[in-house]
């Protein structure tokens, strides 16, 4: 295999009726590398990885898994992939053991191997002591962990996780992020989608920023932040007409980008110290009451704002 990427996709495209959900997305992931797709809800993350996982027909583009073309109708390439759907995908009436055994066998493991891997995975996801209970009696976090465990059974070379931490308590979330990092350290290629900037920054070697079905930029955190240039990020905690405030601020010459989210206005400016008075004045006149001002180092959220003119979470 050598330097051949575990996953390579090119020009992926998917159209739902009038809506082009994914439009020419391409990236590649090497063994041991974690690649993050960062974008807001509706950006096209799930659609993209559904095509990669072979559960959704693509309208255009190629997916190569370990150098071989991978298509939804062809079952073979799929055994290299561990796919963990965004929504829970487990049988509620079966126990964790039964869920795991079934999927292990479905991925072609022998009876003995399925039993052994089930026991191992139960340890990893911390469900060994409750493995015989019907899954419907589990807490939300336990179900999430089982959901992830199923994808690990056959020790895939490519692990695909779709927003695995949404709706998870902070403790489980940490456990999930740690286990993903461990798998990558063991040599798996990981494709991880999220709309949390912190997760992408913490976990991913490289990040692709996706919005409205297009990949806007791609690179390491450092490379991406470099795109923002020497700009500062100004975060205003505010109330009132934030949309109007962001629009008015965006018209100031020294403001590069302006976006707004719940209770805040997000700005990229050339030099915070110089423009701040003008910004505050403009925003207040546009109808927003500013409660706090924060000047930050640029991060991936700033990159997103820079690239799209929108706040990542809105």
């Amino acid at each position: 295999m050598g330097d051949e990427p575990v996953l390579e996709c090119r020009g992926l495209r998917k159209v739902f009726g009038e809506n082009t959900a994914v439009d020419g997305v391409g990236f590649s992931i090497a063994a041991g590398e974690t690649y993050g797709l960062l974008g807001p809800n509706g950006a096209g993350k799930t659609t993209t990885i559904s095509m990669v996982a072979g559960i959704l027909e693509r309208d255009a583009g190629d997916v190569l898994v370990e150098g071989r073309v991978h298509s939804p109708r062809d079952g073979r390439g799929k055994s290299a992939i561990g796919y963990i759907p965004q929504e829970l995908a487990i049988y509620p009436d079966l126990s964790a053991t039964e869920n795991l055994r079934f999927f292990a066998r479905l991925y072609g493991l022998s009876r003995a191997r399925a039993r052994a891997r089930t026991a191992e995975v139960l340890e990893v996801i911390g469900l060994a002591d409750r493995a015989k209970e019907p899954v419907k009696q589990y807490s939300g976090g336990m179900k999430r962990r089982l959901n992830i465990g199923i994808g690990l059974l056959h020790e895939p070379r490519l692990l695909i996780l779709d927003e695995p931490t949404v709706g998870v308590d902070p403790q489980s979330r940490n456990a999930i992020l740690e286990s993903v990092a461990r798998l990558a350290a063991e040599g798996a290629a990981v494709l991880y989608t999220t709309h949390y900037m912190e997760e992408a920054e913490r976990l991913c070697d490289r990040v692709g920023i996706i919005d409205e079905g297009r990949l806007r930029a791609e690179g390491t955190r450092r490379e991406l932040v470099g795109l923002v240039g020497e700009n500062d990020r100004v975060l205003l905690t505010a109330e009132g007409d934030l949309a109007a405030a962001a629009e008015a601020a965006g018209k100031l010459p020294a403001v590069r980008q302006a976006g707004h989210g719940e209770g805040r206005v997000d700005l990229l400016v050339e030099s915070a110290r110089e423009v701040l008075p003008a910004v505050l004045d403009t925003v207040t006149r546009a109808g927003a009451a500013v409660r706090a001002v924060e000047v930050r180092e640029p991060n991936l959220e700033a990159v997103f704002l820079h690239l799209t003119g929108k706040a990542l979470r809105d």
Partner: peptide, 15 residues
């Protein structure tokens, strides 16, 4: 509804 269909479709088996 339970999401497991996605897993069956993603598994290395004929549809």
């Amino acid at each position: 509804r339970d999401g497991t269909l996605a897993r069956l479709v993603a598994a290395p088996i004929p549809r």
